[in-house]
Design a protein around this nucleic acid. Structure first.
Length: 939
RNA sequence: GGGCGCGUAGCUCAGCGGAAGAGCACUACCUUGACAUGGUAGGGGUCACAGGUUCGAUCCCUGUCGCGCCCACCA
């Protein structure tokens, strides 16, 4: 017996456990060994993460695909796992140390800290996985991977070493986005532009050798002026042409700044003269290169002024000037404090020409939230420009397709303008870079000015390389600093053992994520999975990580596997709150998917997300919507109960083509139409259309009409018809459970089992491999009959409602001068029509009884005698209104058909369609006119 | 500055070249033997605006006005 109501919380955990235990999520099961493979790799959530609405959407859609393909008999691998999320995880653990008042990361040291992180991961890393299970994700958990697993780490090292050897990874000293809070470099993508109110200060720089001549520059960053090494003007700017080649004197410091001509200087901006600080601005860096300007870095890692002992800064400065020595007092001062003080001094010196207030965008670190600092350091880079060429080409040629297509433009825009990818991070949690250093040989000596790099997959190989290089034994030391003590620089001979140390930095998290589609399959081993599942079929992800992740997987996949990592990239929307705001913790508008699951069930949430996942539009999620789809699960549940209560049990080897009754042929036809619609929609990633088609079919066709129309048979005593109908009800119910299973796996699986024939057990829907298939449509003719019933019943109900005739009032239906076929239909369906429209009797007559309401149903008239109940005038008005509507239809169609161009140029079937419509409308008009005439006679 | 997208019923959104749709909300009626988490019927829209293409435009093109997002940009 099916329970009176469906309780998701009771069912979901139990069902999920049986799925997992049965091994049905696993790829390569014996029964699908011969089947075509289908593979999706999960976008690995951060180990630190907990499930948010974005995950819920992302994984629902993947699960729809995975279950759909599995049910179609394919060998599905949905590859799960998590990402180590370098910065995020390190921050979480550091915060935890602080909260528990434990020693800080630095105090612990690298090894001990990493132990803490691993311990933390062991403890809470499973949270997100368990949450994914709650929404029903059918991943092959036996293959769960973590980006810092041994296998994946091996892949990372191999990729690094190979790219290094191919010259596609290199170390370079250039400006990076430096996060002065986290003390690490970050990539361009991790920088968020934040609009801020700021100031534009106009400073007057004296021109050398000319008293009272100044060149005025504008800056938003006075504190970096100490690192100025030039002033640039546009070569064609008449205001400054005569100053080109002269020198300005940097106030507070006394440095001579060449005034250079460079088209970077924009005469429209600021004063048209721009101070050049190559060590603190990306554009200035380029200008500096063009004019061979020195790089003077005046900030330290923590963005404090760094002046004392700063050789680059001090080089060439006038000694002993009072101004300079006062400036030196600023050493060690934070950038923002220094800014104020420098402005104050410039003002005091009368060199502050003007201050403007303005909005400008300032780059911030997306994790730390502080303004990043362009900072001159040695970092590792990937030559993305080279790797991007095949990656862009693969999409241009269609080997990988984006859905929706417009994202390809975004992808190309990025790929075609790609910058070197900074991959080193000054963190501890991550893949430590497999590079070892020693002092370079300079003849027979070690040079303190240069290091030699040994890149290898293992320490042993790196040390062997070093031994080879030095022709001496080497010893591993902890750091560059440690190496200094053990080397006697300047000694005649090389030391007996040469110190070598490993790069302390780790790789950007996205470096390992970029390998995910093949590293998870076992690469670099040539595993069975690599051969079978790569390239994967679909990648389902959000647009926010097209650059971070998708683009880089394309680059790495093509380079190392010589093949695209996936054929289709489905880009889904962002889930917003019901007012359209981005959900964020700080705004407090986050809807917790687990809360919705608790309240409405996982199926309701999944169905909502799928139903709203229209391509190219964000999802504004409201609880009401979820509630609506929860009601849909209830409807489904009750329909199944109805079937059970009426003895509708699945008949083995039932063939829907064999049914005799019109109603059953009709629903077979409708089922077929629905399954085609749903299948095609999922195949083309139109999840919302698939969900909508399923919803309409189940509710508006199956429940509203088929079950209602089948009641007289099921309750009647014609056993032959009854058996056929019972079998058909059970068949359609089963088809529905299959069609809905990708969207609502729990309730469908539960119903699938509880509706099994008594004493039998059914195999899980998951592995059934019996997705409703498309044979030819079964029967078009049945629509004529069932459609007529539906129209008739609807028309009668309409009249009832209009006339305020409650259900208690039984009416008589009179068929007025109808065809023999219609009369026979009415005869066949008398029970149903009586039941659904609450009639006591159906009769046939050539004329409607006195005081009838006359209705035109599919070109024929039926009447409801309502003597005494109807107002003749009102009835006339009603009919005239209907007549007017039909006449308007005819007029509109005639206008079209009367247009020679339309008839000549519109497609045949469209013209034909219009003619048919005109026929129908005309017939309808005639019937209404007749009805009006009769009404007139009767009154 | 470059690019993408969106303005359709009160709300949230489908549709996107051949007679305006759904869910929710609203109104009226209904404890009819699956379901009140329900049933039946209904009200509600010059499909942002202006041009153009077309036999025909909510749908295609151009422009305007609103709104959102991405990329670039600390003069």
């Amino acid at each position: 017996m099916i329970d009176k109501s469906y309780q998701p919380t009771d069912v979901e955990g139990r069902i999920y456990a049986t799925w997992e235990q049965s091994g049905a999520f696993r790829c390569g099961r014996a029964e699908s060994a011969e089947a075509a493979p289908y593979c999706i790799v999960i976008p690995p959530p951060n180990v630190t993460g907990s499930l948010h609405m974005g995950h819920a959407l992302n994984n629902t859609l993947q699960d729809v695909l995975a279950r759909f393909e599995r049910m179609r008999g394919r060998d599905v691998l949905w590859q799960p796992g998590t990402d180590h999320a370098g910065i995020a995880t390190q921050m979480v653990v550091e915060r935890q140390l602080m909260e528990r008042q434990l020693p800080t990361r630095r105090a612990l040291g690298r090894a001990a800290f990493l132990e803490k992180v691993w311990a933390w991961k062991a403890e809470s890393g499973g949270t997100i996985i368990n949450q994914l299970k709650r929404i029903g994700a059918s991943c092959d958990w036996s293959r769960e991977r973590f980006t810092m697993d041994e296998g994946l780490s091996k892949a990372v090292l191999k990729v690094f070493v190979e790219l290094y050897r191919a010259g596609l990874i290199y170390k370079d000293k250039r400006l990076v986005n430096w996060d002065p809070k986290l003390l690490t470099a970050i990539s361009d993508l991790e920088v968020q532009q934040v609009e801020e109110k700021g100031h534009l200060w106009h400073f007057r720089y004296p021109v050398e050798g000319r008293t009272d001549t100044f060149i005025t520059v504008a800056t938003t960053r006075p504190e970096t002026m100490l690192g100025d090494t030039a002033v640039a003007v546009h070569p064609d700017d008449p205001r400054y042409r005569r100053l080109i080649g002269k020198f300005a004197i940097l106030p507070l410091v006394g440095r001579r700044l060449p005034i250079v001509a460079d088209s970077y200087a924009d005469p429209e901006k600021g004063t048209g003269a721009v101070k050049i600080t190559p060590a603190h601005d990306f554009n200035d860096f380029e200008v500096g290169r063009r004019h061979d300007l020195p790089l003077v870095s005046v900030l330290d890692r923590e963005a404090c002024l760094n002046l004392e002992g700063n050789e680059a800064f001090l080089d060439g400065l006038p000694e002993g000037s009072a101004e300079l020595s006062e400036t030196m007092q600023l050493h060690g001062i934070d950038r923002y404090v220094a800014r104020k003080q420098i402005v104050a001094r410039m003002d005091a010196l009368g060199l502050l020409a003007k201050v403007e207030t303005q909005q400008h965008v300032v780059p911030h670190g997306d994790r730390s939230g502080v303004a990043i600092e362009p900072y001159l350091t040695d970092q590792w880079y990937v030559d993305a420009k080279k790797l991007a060429v095949p990656a862009a080409a693969a999409v241009r040629s269609g080997r990988t397709t984006f859905v929706p297509k417009q994202w390809e433009a975004t992808y190309f825009n990025w790929m075609d303008n790609i910058q070197p990818w900074c991959i080193s991070r000054q963190l501890w949690w991550g893949h430590q870079i497999p590079a070892w250093y020693g002092w370079a040989l300079d003849g027979d000596q070690l040079s303190i000015a240069k290091t030699q790099i040994f890149v290898a997959q293992t320490e042993a190989e790196a040390l062997a390389e070093a031994r080879d290089y030095y022709k001496r034994d080497v010893v591993l030391v902890a750091s560059l600093d440690d190496s200094l003590g053990s080397v006697g620089f300047g000694a005649d001979k090389l030391p007996e053992t040469i110190p070598v140390w490993r790069d302390e930095d780790v790789l950007d998290t996205w470096f390992s994520s970029a390998l995910w589609p093949f590293s998870t399959l076992g690469w670099p081993e040539q595993t069975r999975e690599i051969k079978r599942y790569y390239p994967t079929n679909a990648l389902v992800t959000g647009f926010d990580i097209i650059f971070f992740w998708v683009a880089r997987m394309m680059m790495m996949g093509l380079h190392f596997m010589k093949e695209v990592p996936f054929h289709t990239v489905y880009i889904h929307a962002l889930v917003r709150d019901e007012r359209g705001a981005k959900m964020s913790k700080s705004k407090g508008n986050v809807i917790d998917p687990l809360g919705l699951i608790d309240e409405f069930g996982a199926d309701a949430l999944r169905f909502t997300l799928a139903a709203m996942a229209a391509q190219g539009r964000d999802i504004k999620l409201s609880t009401q919507r979820v509630e609506g789809y929860r009601n849909f699960t209830t409807k489904l549940w009750n329909a199944a109960r109805f079937a059970e209560m009426n003895g509708c049990a699945t008949v083995a080897d039932f063939d829907p083509k064999s049914v005799k009754q019109t109603l059953n042929r009709w629903i077979a036809n409708e089922t077929q139409k629905a399954s085609i619609e749903i299948t095609e929609a999922i195949e083309s990633y139109r999840f919302n259309e698939a969900a909508g088609a399923a919803y309409r079919f189940v509710w508006n066709i199956f429940c509203d009409w088929y079950l209602e129309l089948s009641k007289p048979v099921l309750l009647g005593d014609d056993n032959g018809s009854k058996d056929e109908t019972r079998a058909m009800v059970a068949f359609v119910r089963d088809e529905i459970l299959k069609l809905l299973h990708p969207f609502m796996p729990f309730i469908t699986e539960e119903l699938w089992h509880v509706t099994a024939a008594p004493g039998t057990k059914r195999a899980s829907l998951l592995t059934l491999a019996r997705w409703p298939h498309h044979t030819q449509l079964l029967d078009h003719a049945s629509e004529g009959e069932i459609g007529w019933i539906i129209d008739l019943v609807t028309a009668i109900r309409s009249v009832r409602a209009e006339m305020n005739l409650t259900f208690a009032t039984e009416l008589v239906l009179v068929l007025v001068g109808v065809s023999a076929e219609t009369a026979a239909r009415a005869e066949r369906w008398a029970d149903v029509v009586k039941r659904l429209s609450r009639l006591s009797n159906i009769t046939v007559s050539q004329n409607p009884p006195h005081g009838s309401v006359q209705l035109v149903v599919r070109g024929e008239v039926v009447a409801l005698p309502l003597a005494g109940l109807i107002d003749v005038e009102a009835e006339r008005a009603r009919l005239e209104k209907e007549l007017a509507r039909s006449q308007a239809d005819i007029a509109r169609i005639d206008a079209k058909l009367g247009n020679a161009d339309f008839v000549r140029r519109a497609p045949e079937e469209v013209v034909e369609g219009e003619r048919e419509k005109r026929e129908e409308a005309d017939a309808r008009c005639r019937k209404i006119v007749e009805a009006l005439e009769r009404l007139a006679r009767m009154s």
